[in-house]
Every structure is written in C-alpha cells, then in structure tokens.
C-alpha cells in the first residue's frame, strides 16, 4: 500500500541571493512518522512553512495530501494539523474553549465537537480540568492537549515543530504514545526534534544540512550507513560539516 501523502521534487526557497532550501526531494508515505532533523539554520523551518502552504517556494514541485502547494494552499490547510512548541493554544482560554475554538475553525459541526471533545478529555484525563485556563496547566499537559487539538479534525498529515522541548521525560514518552496512536490511525506525522532518542522513534529520518537533505533513511540504516552507534553520532557527523551559520 504505497500511498504517498507528501511528495516534493526539487523544492527550493531563496531569499534574495540566499538559498534557504536547496532542491529538496523526498516522499512521505501515509501513516509514517517522518523525522525532519537538522542543525539550527539548516532550513527546516523554511521547508516546513512551504509544506504547510504558508510560504511560496521559489521553484520545484510539491504536493501535500494530493494538493499542489502553489495553487491549493487553502485546501492543504484543511488537510493538515500543525503544532509547535512556541504557539499551540490560547493560554487565557480554558481547555474546553480551546478545543471548541480549534475544532470550530476546522469546520466541525457542534455535535462532532461535543463528541470529540469528550473523547479527547477522557483520553487525556482532563475531564476535571476542562474549565481550567490552559495557562495554568503544566507544560506537559499543554503539549499533549495541543497535539490532540491539532489532530481533532483527523487531518491526513500533522506537522510537529519541536513538540517536546523542555518537557519532562515521562510526559515526553506519553507524548510519543499519542504520536504512535495517531500514526496507527493513519495520520502521517512530520516531526522535528532536538532529542536524538526521539529520532529513533521515527519510521524514517531526513537530515538537513545547509538547505539540502544530506541523508534520508530509517534510523537503523542511517546508523549502518555512517558506522555509528547512536543517532547522536550520525547527526554530529553530518552537521559538523555545515558551513552555514545564519538562521
């Protein structure tokens, strides 16, 4: 069942004479957990913005869930979920208000919203806290809630930008349980992280260096390829050669 949900071909983004992303080409299969790794300034954020339809590529082709990233950005936005460490939920709204709001902007009906929010609250064990302000929740809970909200409309792909930064080790693992669950339900997960152990949880990894994808394989194959014992070494080996310093 080779169902490709993300396909890019020579995708490039230039800012003036600076090439942030240089002809990246890769495919992501449905249900995959795709790790998108790279040093600071390697071009990850720029690439991710293009894939989410937030930024127009300079050249190259890409389709997200069958939609073209030049012409069908609005359709793309309906088919993806997005969550980042920096912005996830409104701190000054309650848990349930956040769920309703985000479900609402993705066009879920009132009945669906009610049903889904009950399931979600139950799953996260937040039933008793649903009227609490999100700002008062511990970081780990916030991140779990943010992820669940990002997939509430059952998108075909969810983009996660450093979702577990600064989260405690137990919650971090619970977070990955959620990712696995989403992946089992057929949602493709596209994730960036600075934790190398998390890189191991991905089905496949891409390593970006200086705007190019320098390696792309499963964690095991990457370690074989670079004769490394850990992903840390693989990453270090690749990123050490980076010339670019600017973000």
């Amino acid at each position: 069942m080779n169902n490709i949900v993300i396909q890019t071909n020579g995708l490039t983004k230039k800012f003036g004479d600076f090439t942030a992303v240089n002809e990246i080409t890769f495919d992501v299969q449905a249900g995959e957990i795709f790790g998108f790794l790279g040093a600071n300034g390697a071009g990850k954020t720029t690439a991710m913005r293009m894939l989410c339809g937030l930024s127009q590529p300079t050249s190259g082709k890409a389709t997200i869930a069958g939609c073209d990233i030049y012409t069908q950005t609005e359709k793309i936005k309906k088919n993806i979920g997005y969550m980042s460490q920096k912005f996830s939920l409104y701190e000054d709204l309650t848990v349930i208000e956040n769920i309703r709001f985000f479900a609402g902007i993705y066009g879920l009906s009132d009945i669906e919203i009610k049903e889904k929010s009950n399931i979600l609250l139950h799953k996260l064990g937040l039933e008793t806290s649903k009227k609490k302000l999100v700002g008062s929740l511990p970081l780990g809970w916030k991140q779990k809630l943010a992820f669940s909200v990002a997939v509430i409309h059952e998108p075909s792909i969810v983009f996660l930008d450093e979702p577990t930064g600064g989260v405690d080790p137990i919650t971090r693992r619970q977070f990955w349980d959620l990712i696995y669950e989403a992946s089992d339900n057929g949602i493709t997960v596209f994730v960036t992280t600075h934790y190398m152990d998390e890189a191991e949880y991905c089905s496949r990894l891409s390593m970006m260096v200086d705007g190019e994808i320098k390696a792309l394989n499963s964690p095991t194959n990457l370690k074989d390829q670079f004769h490394a014992d850990s992903m840390d070494e693989v990453f270090y080996e690749l990123a050490r050669g980076a010339k670019r310093k600017a973000d």
């Binding site: 600071n40 600075h194 840390d232 990453f235 270090y236 990123a239 050490r240």
Partner: peptide
C-alpha cells in the same frame, strides 16, 4: 540558565 535549549546537538556539544 538553559543555555542549550532550542539549540541543535552539534552546537550543544
């Protein structure tokens, strides 16, 4: 205070 937060593995090292 958290000098390496959000910094990639190479820079951290």
């Amino acid at each position: 205070d958290e000098p390496t937060t959000g910094v990639d593995a190479v820079s951290r090292k």
